[in-house]
């Protein structure tokens, strides 16, 4: 606990690079509730990596085989280790060949096994799971939706990719409602998902077909934050009191939603290699019950 407090103070005093985004978890709970919850929760941080697309090859990333390895090295060199690391899907780039899919999943797993922090959690993206309903993914990483608790926060991993129609499905929605029913209304909940749960830009397939049903279920709880991937860039959006934060990719960035006619990767810039790629740390348990989000590049500039 002492280390965590020192670490946050260190970050603020040092003013390390990257954008810090404060994500309120407070909703409309009373100040009394904040204080009570702050006392319940330990200070910690986790790292989110997303859309590594292992197996991709093409001009958008001339270092396609090296970027993930560099990211692993960057996470390993963080001054203090995170409590856990979360990969929010598209671990591999899609392939129509089931054997090649397994080869890529295996190679990805071997590379990230070099992470010093061993509490590493995964979830699939549509590139990993949509062509076989998550069959190959499960062979390597287990269930595609699950929950876990860590230092006063309830984490829920939702799968909106194993169904090729980009839906959670009634069964998973019922499972979500049942899980939340066991919590108090002001419990601290973090949701990890691959696709956005809201209609960010459906024209580019940046949506979940029945995501609004999940949001409706989550709305009954006052302290919910969603972290997701899929769109290969930062985006911060509120649906009512629920904050949604998307992460950068570790293969190629995509343009802002609707900013151009087609969803095409942002071209590699030789003068600024790895621009737009990176990972983030999410600092939990600050005094006002907000998450501090800090973005890191793949390599230090």
């Amino acid at each position: 606990m002492k280390n965590s407090i020192n670490r946050r103070d260190f970050l603020r005093l040092a003013g390390l690079g990257g954008v810090v985004f404060a994500s309120s978890l407070s909703g409309c709970a009373s100040m009394g509730a904040y204080k009570e919850k702050s006392e319940e929760t330990n200070d910690f941080y986790f790292v989110q990596l997303s859309d590594t697309h292992w197996g991709f090859e093409g001009p958008p990333n001339p270092d396609a085989k090296g970027t993930l390895i560099k990211a692993v090295s960057a996470v390993n060199s963080l001054q203090q280790p995170p409590d856990f690391i979360m990969f929010t899907g598209d671990l591999t780039h899609t392939t129509d060949n089931p054997n090649e899919r397994r080869k890529r999943l295996g190679e990805f797993k071997a590379i990230v096994s070099e992470l010093k922090v061993k509490n590493v959690r995964f979830m699939p993206g549509e590139h990993d799971a949509s062509l076989d309903h998550g069959e190959a993914y499960k062979e390597f990483f287990g269930e595609t939706h699950y929950t876990f608790d860590h230092k006063g926060i309830h984490f829920i991993v939702l799968d909106n990719v194993s169904d090729p129609a980009a839906a959670l499905g009634d069964q998973q929605l019922a499972w979500l409602a049942d899980d939340l029913s066991k919590l108090t209304k002001d419990a601290n909940v973090v949701v990890f998902t691959h696709r956005p749960l809201f209609d960010l830009y459906p024209q580019w397939d940046w949506a979940t077909r029945d995501g609004s049903k999940a949001i409706e279920i989550l709305m009954a709880h006052s302290n919910v934050t969603v972290f997701y991937g899929h769109i290969h860039q930062e985006n911060h959006f509120m649906t009512g009191h629920i904050a949604h934060h998307s992460a950068k990719s570790l293969m190629f960035p995509l343009p802002p939603p609707g900013s151009q006619p087609k969803r095409m990767p942002v071209p590699w810039d030789m003068s600024q290699p790895y621009r737009g790629l990176g990972f983030r740390e999410v600092d939990a348990g600050s005094k006002n019950y907000a998450f501090d989000i800090k973005e890191y590049p793949v390599i230090k500039s």
Binding site: T94, T95, D96, S130, L131, Q203, W204, D205
Partner: peptide
């Protein structure tokens, strides 16, 4: 002018099917 697209993931070229 409005975009339409395939919304069922159908393979390696799915993302360009619009």
């Amino acid at each position: 002018t409005f975009t339409f697209y395939c919304d069922i993931f159908c393979g390696s070229g799915h993302e360009d099917m619009n």
